[in-house]
Design a protein around this nucleic acid. Structure first.
Length: 825
RNA sequence: GCGAAAGUGGCGGAAUUGGCAGACGCGCUGGACUUAGGAUCCAGUGAGGCAACUCGUAGGGGUUCGAGUCCCCUCUUUCGCACCA
């Protein structure tokens, strides 16, 4: 007989809802705890990944409630973006309609999983009451000088009619639709995240993040120290600033390398419309996809510009080349090339027969120009570098930078790999940028009283050749808020990462219609105590959210430095070793599992299969195992309920050996469970402890024959099971708890408790090792002294045999564990 | 190429600080029972050996009374970054 999981799950979901136990109060005598899982894109169907991720957050939530915290676990929807637009197109509908339908469908599936979510705080980024405040924050960023427009070459997806972030280009193709990405010059809106680069490198205010996420962010930001040096264009006043991390090699510059995107190159192209070679080369390189262009295999190519510049340090006249191996986005976009000491420059110089000049000599002076087959990039002794000759090259870095600074040629500087955040998207289904373009006044921010700039409903959503917002004249054409003349709205919408960069704060005050959130309420809940989400967000979402949080702190809206105190990056669910996906055809429908075995079974399987941060391999047999386990627990407690209830009111007293062993087992299991749940977040072993406890209890074959004092232990052991299961299988746990006639609900019944004194057994087993090999065992009382143990060990028959012919050199006693004998000839 | 993490039975995984390797679950083998179930219960299950014992945590070396755990080298896998000047 299977336990009636369907009835039980519906019953307790109703009770939790009616008692509103997951509605987090704004004030509480208990300490607060904020649990947040990354909100989903509302696809309309719960997939196994959602079930897995949110089971972790729910386990944390229920544990912290048992522990006595006032817990908030909110949920919302990251509802803007291209998938929603595409979904609507496919279903011949409107994203507003399909998205709201999907949200309703997902919410009922979340409820079917029994997640303890505070639905009073639900947020959806596509609703005007939310995106209004995103526009408001945009204006604040603008007012603080953190927003600017820039014309630049962008990854352009013709299929999606939108700009893609570099991070959104995968192997030269659009990450959403897979079509080829080309380069197009566009005026774009940017957030100056680089202003916060230095602070974003500081993780000291974070309590517990995985080391590897912090490392990834550090590498992503990519700080490097170096010098900015201004070269002069020959016969001109034009400066060409370069950034270098190797100012010690500056006397070895033999050419300058510029990318085709460089403004100077663009100017030359404009002034020489007939220079076919130059035009062809530049067009070719610009349209090469950026990833391919920056791959190690790419062949270095270039054309001589016919122009020269002057090295300010020694007055050398240097050829300027236009190349495919320099990136406009990094440093100043111009590179001083030192072939002798940089491998890329070396390869390029060899290919185009550009001179090479050694300025750093190996310590053994063995470097000979004619014999060089590769660049010498190690430190060494300065040569051919005027007054710096003879210096150590590492010391010369600072000396040369200082010399250049004193003469006004340059300065010491830092540069970051991190680029400013391009937020413009040429799509309909996003948050409109609250800007009006006036022919007279220029860029004008939409006044607060006119916020939100609402998305018009009457657009043709489809694969049009331009942004659908352009097709709504009554929305597009407005009068200028400043001068009243006819003006035009900005039609770009914001990257959806903007929406998800502050939602964690909105949950604290989700219905506020005066401001994004009330600072006092936000500060009560923030920072998020436990954030849970995928590792794939390490460099984008998690970095953008930290940037926004620091900006909001600088505005005085929040008083913490970091949004997420602890981070858990959960693994994904795989099947046959691969990520589940429709295209691979290896998906599993969680709804089927819920209907057939119950949500509790699905949750226990997902949490038991591996630790939360590791991938879970799907296994139908594993699901059956979880189901069998819950059924065994059910039969034990449901079948012995009167006995257990009686035991719970019995007094302790004399007990037999078998029950003494059970008492040790139950206290030990609770101890392990507590450590695994609270200290280590290792739910797979916490569940294993509950299984071990069950196995220990069912060893008692005839509980009805137990005397009262023994029944007290038996009852205690059985009653521990619902508590231990509550974070993972809450429905069956509540039902069993009720069967045992406990009065409160489990979340207010406290953690299961163990007693230290029962973690000791009456006798303990010492193992005896001789030279590291197991040679015997010893059953003794825990109080046995070290000397006695040593003597006893030497009397063990097998030990005596193994020591025959050897002399004992040393005996080491590890209290409670082992006796180690070192012996030799 | 650089950086990070990992490698344990047939499988998923345990082993909190260096202290009985393989907890727990799956699978498998044998048995019991039967209201033949996606049941339940009992016993067994790293390899070799009749046994005493030997071997065993990717491979090789080292430190230690004692190493899955610490150190060095090699191999493999995964992830991140990648002409970053």
């Amino acid at each position: 007989m299977e336990y009636p999981f369907g009835k039980i799950e519906r019953k307790w979901q109703r009770v939790w809802r009616e008692k509103r136990i997951f509605s987090a109060p704004q004030k509480s005598e208990k300490p607060k705890y904020y649990v947040l899982s990354m909100f989903p894109y509302p696809s309309g169907v719960l997939h196994i990944g959602h079930a897995s991720n949110y089971s972790i957050g729910d386990a944390v939530t229920r544990l912290k409630m048992m522990q006595g915290y006032s817990v908030m676990q909110p949920m919302g929807y990251d509802a803007f973006g291209m998938p929603a637009e595409n979904y609507a197109i496919q279903h011949n509908s409107h994203p507003r309609i399909t998205t709201e339908e999907n949200i309703a469908a997902m919410r009922s599936q979340f409820d079917g999983m029994g997640f303890g979510l505070d639905w009073d705080r639900e947020v959806s980024t596509c609703r005007p009451d939310y995106y209004r405040w995103g526009q408001y924050i945009f204006k604040k960023l603008y007012e603080k000088g953190l927003v600017y427009r820039k014309k630049s070459f962008q990854n352009w997806c013709e299929e999606c009619q939108t700009v893609l972030a570099n991070e959104q280009v995968e192997d030269g193709s659009c990450w959403r639709c897979g079509s080829e990405v080309e380069q197009k010059e566009l005026e774009q809106w940017y957030f100056r995240i680089t202003d916060y680069a230095e602070e974003l490198l500081d993780f000291s205010k974070i309590i517990d993040w995985p080391e590897r996420v912090m490392t990834m962010q550090k590498n992503w930001i990519g700080k490097s120290e170096g010098a900015k040096i201004n070269f002069m264009l020959e016969n001109s006043e034009t400066q060409i600033p370069i950034f270098t991390t190797r100012p010690d090699t500056i006397y070895g510059v033999t050419f300058m390398a510029l990318p085709p995107e460089h403004p100077l190159v663009q100017a030359w192209l404009a002034s020489e419309p007939d220079n076919k070679a130059l035009h062809d080369f530049c067009r070719k390189v610009i349209n090469e996809d950026k990833l391919l262009r920056s791959s190690a295999e790419a062949v270095k190519e270039g054309v001589f510009s016919g122009r020269y510049c002057i090295n300010p340090l020694n007055g050398d006249k240097v050829q300027i080349w236009i190349t495919n191996y320099v990136l406009m986005d990094y440093g100043t976009g111009a590179v001083m090339a030192v072939p002798a000491h940089d491998q890329r420059d070396f390869d390029f110089a060899k290919k185009y027969k550009i001179p090479i000049k050694i300025v750093i000599q190996k310590p053994d002076s063995s470097l000979v120009l004619e014999e060089m087959t590769e660049a010498y990039i190690e430190p060494g002794i300065m040569v051919n570098s005027q007054q710096f000759d003879g210096m150590e090259s590492e010391a010369a870095k600072a000396a040369i930078t200082e010399w250049a600074a004193q003469n006004g040629w340059g300065e010491q500087t830092f540069t970051y790999r991190l680029r400013d955040w391009g937020i413009s998207r040429q799509r309909y289904w996003g948050n409109p940028i609250p800007v009006i373009h006036c022919p007279k006044c220029g860029v004008v921010l939409v006044p607060d009283r006119d916020l939100p700039v609402r998305l018009p409903d009457n657009v043709q959503v489809g694969r049009t050749t331009s942004n659908p917002l352009l097709s709504v004249p009554e929305w597009l054409n407005v009068s200028c808020p400043q001068c009243g003349e006819m003006a035009r709205r900005e039609t770009d919408t914001m990257d959806t990462f903007v929406d998800s960069s502050w939602y964690f704060a909105r949950y604290a005050d989700p219905k506020n219609d005066k401001e994004p959130f009330n600072p006092e309420q936000a500060n009560y809940w923030l920072p998020v105590d436990q954030y849970i989400g995928g590792i794939e967000h390490a460099c984008m979402h998690l970095l953008y959210a930290r940037f926004f949080h620091k900006f909001m702190r600088d505005l005085g809206w929040v008083n913490s430095d970091e949004p997420f105190a602890r981070l858990l990056t959960q693994g994904m669910v795989t099947k046959d070793g691969a990520k589940m996906s429709k295209s691979k055809g290896n998906t599993v429908d969680p709804q089927y599992i819920i209907d057939r075995f119950g949500a509790d079974t699905l949750r226990v399987f997902l949490l038991f299969a591996s630790p939360p941060e590791k991938d879970v391999e799907w296994s139908d047999d594993g699901v059956m195992g979880a189901f069998r386990f819950l059924n065994r627990v059910w039969r034990l407690i449901d079948g012995n309920q009167d006995l257990i209830v009686k035991g719970l009111s019995c007094n302790p007293g004399e007990i037999g050996e078998e029950i003494a062993e059970l008492r040790y087992q139950v206290h030990h299991a609770i101890y392990r469970w507590t450590e695994d749940c609270l200290q280590r977040m290792q739910y797979n072993t916490a569940i294993a402890s509950a299984m071990e406890l069950l196995n220990a209890i069912v060893k008692i074959k005839e509980p009805e024959k137990l005397v009262d004092a023994e029944l007290a232990v038996y009852g205690f052991a059985c009653a521990a099971l619902p508590k231990m299961l509550y974070p993972f299988a809450p429905h069956i746990a509540e039902e069993l708890w009720e069967i045992l006639r406990r009065e409160k609900l489990l979340h207010e019944s406290g953690l299961p408790g163990y007693e230290e004194r029962y973690l000791q057994r009456d006798s303990i087993t010492y193992v005896i090792q001789i030279n590291g090999k197991l040679r015997g065992k010893l059953e003794v009382s825990p109080a046995t002294s070290s000397e006695t143990l040593q003597a006893m060990a030497l009397e063990v028959e097998n030990v005596k045999r193994c020591l025959d012919g050897l002399s004992v050199k040393k005996i080491i006693v590890i209290p409670g564990k082992m006796i180690s004998i070192a012996a030799g000839k």
